[in-house]
Design a protein around this nucleic acid. Structure first.
Length: 463
RNA sequence: UCCCCGGUAGCUCAGCUGGUAGAGCAGGCGGCUGUUAACCGCCUUGUCGUAGGUUCGAGUCCUACCCGGGGAGCCA
């Protein structure tokens, strides 16, 4: 098919004049006796184009005057400078065709809707200003991520979605099975016999591509994954999804300090790109959603992130003139309120916290020389909290075996992961970025369910 | 999963200490205008989340459940 000029492209023309064809959906229509104004949007930009229709247009008194919010139309006419306010150009229509009408009861109105309501009509909400802008920013950020890594010699590794291991032992997993729920095979002890299942073993949806990314890094040096991830946690918050997209770079010959530098460069690069590509959308978010969006983005791209150790973070929190709901002490994990204090009040910018106590972190993290802390790293940002979690990996076989034992895990389940330490093991590190949290941070959207087109959360997966 | 708040017209919401449901917007009709969340007039719309209970009487009080929101935990 011939690609028609989008409204974004029409509006970007250097000057008026010439014929244009506009295809899109009517956002609002204002009908007069001698003239109708149709604001048409095709999703290519936040702005639509105003189509002006006069009585000389065929069907003016019949079809055109019946056009309302939501109708799909195709208009052809001349692009002229607009005498009215609010737009540079407008289209003086020679013909207007109704492609798709709107039945009574179209739920989207030309007024503000609550995001809660829009979630109940997720099949229509991309047609709103806010969700449309979110989806464009999401796309821009996604491409910026791929470009960042490719510019630095990373290879994208497609990690599997189905896995037998429960990766980091982190969280509940969704089971993947081919067994008939009403006729499950049992073994001698009466337990489900998973050996008869599709994969010959108990299988799950992946909660992380990290372990597979480590395989890739041990061959290709620099890899990243970018794909959906699944957590069956019964989490009901504005920053958790059961299905979300995660970016996981993994780098060979890399220590924690280099990883932290990578994380900062990565985030700043993405922010810069989205600022360039989505100027209009970001201005909209700043104006209508959160008036700190533009200033925050400017701030985080120009200033280096704060970098402190967990121990230093605890000292700051202990010295804070502040009553925390949860007491702070070395050895316990930082609570949301502690993270927010550090990034929103104390430093007022992104903070990278490193070297956490080994007791509160995963088995695969590098054991530091102090024998008390591991090479873990969290990147905290204002309003969102943890946006990145990563670590230098334990690449020394005996240490890793010790950590597996300490965590009550079985070496058999990680035989290939241990093999990586037997054959040409090198220091390596990687992190995971919650893509939706990144989009939340950029747009100022308060609820993670509104930055993914089709949110999956406990009790809800309709669309 | 825990704590708190809420569920009234298609949407946003009002309805005080129990007395039998309203506004704006949307929709329909008409008018007017180079309009821009256009404007003006008239009209339509409800098992007041569900199921019980208290009461002469429940949108309003009580119980349970369902759904939504905010916060917490878990994390990205």
């Amino acid at each position: 098919m011939a690609m028609r000029e989008s409204i974004r492209e029409i509006l970007a023309r250097p000057e008026a004049g010439g014929e244009v064809s506009v295809q899109g959906w009517v956002r609002t229509a204002r009908h007069g006796k001698k003239v109708s104004f149709l604001e048409v949007n095709d999703g290519s930009s936040l702005s639509g184009v105003q189509v002006v229709v006069g009585p000389e247009c065929p069907g003016f008194d019949t079809e055109v005057r019946g056009l309302g919010t939501g109708c799909a139309v195709e208009a052809m006419g001349k692009l002229v400078e607009s005498p009215g306010q609010g737009q540079i150009y407008e289209v003086h229509a020679q013909t207007v065709e109704k492609i798709g009408g709107v039945e009574e009861g179209y739920p989207l109105q030309k007024k503000r809707h609550s995001f809660e309501f829009l979630r109940t009509i997720a099949h229509l909400r991309p047609r709103t200003n806010t969700i449309g802008a979110v989806l464009r920013v999401r796309d821009s950020a996604s491409r910026a991520i791929h470009d960042f890594f490719h510019e630095r010699g990373f290879v994208q590794l497609h990690a599997p979605l189905i896995t037998l291991s429960d990766a980091e032992g982190a969280g509940q997993m969704f089971r993947v099975t081919h067994l008939d729920p009403s006729d499950v095979p049992k073994d001698e002890s009466g337990e489900t016999d998973w050996s008869q299942d599709f994969f010959g073993d108990s299988a799950f949806l992946s909660v992380s591509g990290q372990l597979e990314a480590e395989i890739g890094a041990m061959a290709l040096s620099r890899v990243y994954t970018f794909g959906p991830t699944f957590r069956a946690e019964n989490s009901n918050t504005a920053r958790h999804l059961a299905e979300f997209w995660m970016v996981e770079p993994e780098v060979a010959f890399c220590d924690l300090s280099e990883l932290a530098d990578l994380a900062q460069a990565f985030l700043q690069s993405v922010f810069v790109r989205v600022r360039e590509e989505c100027e209009e959308d970001l201005a909209f978010f700043d104006q209508r959603i959160d008036d700190s969006v533009l200033s925050t983005l400017a701030n985080v791209t120009e200033e280096p992130f704060e970098k402190i150790t967990y121990t230093q973070a605890v000292e700051i929190l202990e010295g804070a003139q502040r009553d925390f709901e949860f007491p702070i002490g070395w050895g316990t994990d930082l609570q949301s309120e502690h993270e927010r204090f550090l990034t929103e009040e104390y430093f007022r910018r992104p903070v990278i916290v490193t070297d956490y106590p080994k007791g509160i972190k995963a088995f695969y993290m590098y054991l530091n020389d102090d024998d008390r802390t591991v090479g873990a790293m969290d990147v905290l940002v204002p309003r969102i909290g943890e946006i990145i979690g990563g670590s230098q990996r334990e690449h020394r076989l005996s240490r890793l075996q010790g950590r597996i034992a300490d965590h009550g895990l079985s070496e058999e389940d990680y035989w290939w992961y241990l093999d990586l330490r037997r054959y040409g093991s090198v220091p390596h590190a990687g992190f995971g970025l919650g893509f939706e949290r990144l989009v939340q941070f950029i747009t100022g959207m308060a609820n993670i369910r509104d930055v993914i087109p089709f949110p999956r959360v406990p009790g809800s997966a309709e669309f």
